[in-house]
Amino acid sequence: MNAYADYLMIISLPTELVKEISRYKRASVNAIGHFEGMHSRAYISVTHQVRCKPFLAQPAIVRMGQRLSTMPPVELYLNGFAYFSNGRSVRTIYAKIEMTERAENWFKLLTMQMGIKLQNFVPHITIARNIPVTAFNKLWPNFENRDFKHRFIVNGLTVLHRDTFAEQLEWKVHRELHFGNKLFAF
């Protein structure tokens, strides 16, 4: 057992949506060249916990899984694209989740059940991360007014882990945490 581990908690996406996002990433590479995360699998990142002691984190994850099992799944809707400004020199383009009242309430419940506080949390699916402004200015017109609508059901949370100080920083699935089995209105 290693001294420290990092944990990444994500919402995995349906295969067809992962393939669709991958097509957008490949088209972006064709337009601007290589960029960070161009080959990474699409997902919704919830939180990244770094340098945790596994003997403390793993039981906490089990308890969190028990709380999450009481939550309902949720249907999320993608509606177009947006971007973040990461300082003055880089931007991140992402597929935008429509934040309906139901989605907002569900994400609030999720973070409460996880026992975490996230400030300025914007659930999204990254297309092109941390690209220079010059590349962004070339790429953004391809996304700005593009119609992109997709809906999918979120049934669980995937917990990935990696050794903090390992030579190969590769994420591996640590645990799948499932939500309850019924959709209902909030």
Rank of each mutant, 00 (worst) to 15 (best):
I61L: 04
S89L: 15
R63S: 07
M71W: 02
G65H: 02
G115W: 07
R102V: 13
R63Q: 08
E104W: 14
R63C: 09
P72L: 06
Y77F: 12
N86H: 08
T111I: 11
K108P: 06
V90D: 14
M114A: 05
R88L: 14
R91P: 05
R91Q: 13
E101A: 14
E101W: 10
M99L: 13
E98H: 07
F84V: 06
Q113E: 12
P73M: 01
E101P: 07
V74E: 01
V90T: 15
G115L: 12
V74S: 06
T100A: 00
G115I: 05
V62T: 08
P73C: 03
P72S: 14
Y94Q: 01
R102K: 12
L78F: 02
R91V: 08
T92Q: 04
Y94S: 00
P72E: 09
E101M: 11
N105D: 10
L78K: 00
F107S: 06
V90W: 13
L76Y: 00
T70M: 11
Y83P: 02
A82D: 15
M71Q: 08
L76F: 04
S69V: 03
N105K: 15
R88V: 11
T111D: 04
P73T: 07
N86D: 11
M71E: 03
Y77K: 14
E101N: 14
Y83H: 09
M71F: 09
L78Y: 02
N105P: 03
S85T: 10
A95R: 01
S85Q: 10
S85R: 13
R88E: 15
I61P: 00
V62D: 05
T70K: 15
R102I: 09
R67F: 07
G87Q: 11
R102S: 09
A82N: 10
E104M: 12
Q66M: 13
Y83T: 01
G115N: 08
A95F: 02
E101I: 14
R102M: 06
A103M: 10
K108E: 13
G87D: 09
I116L: 04
G87S: 10
F81C: 00
Q113A: 15
L109D: 12
N79K: 14
F81W: 00
A82M: 07
V90L: 13
S89M: 12
I61N: 00
M114T: 01
S89E: 15
P73F: 03
M64V: 03
K108G: 07
F107I: 06
R102C: 11
T111Q: 08
V90M: 13
M112F: 12
M71S: 04
A82E: 10
K108I: 11
M114G: 02
L68A: 01
K108L: 13
K108T: 07
F84G: 05
R63P: 04
A95S: 01
W106K: 09
G87C: 08
S69Q: 14
T100I: 05
G65S: 08
I116S: 01
R88I: 12
R63M: 11
I61C: 00
N86M: 09
L68N: 02
R88C: 11
F107A: 05
L68E: 01
Y94D: 02
L110V: 00
V62S: 03
Y77S: 11
W106C: 06
F81Y: 02
M71G: 02
M99A: 05
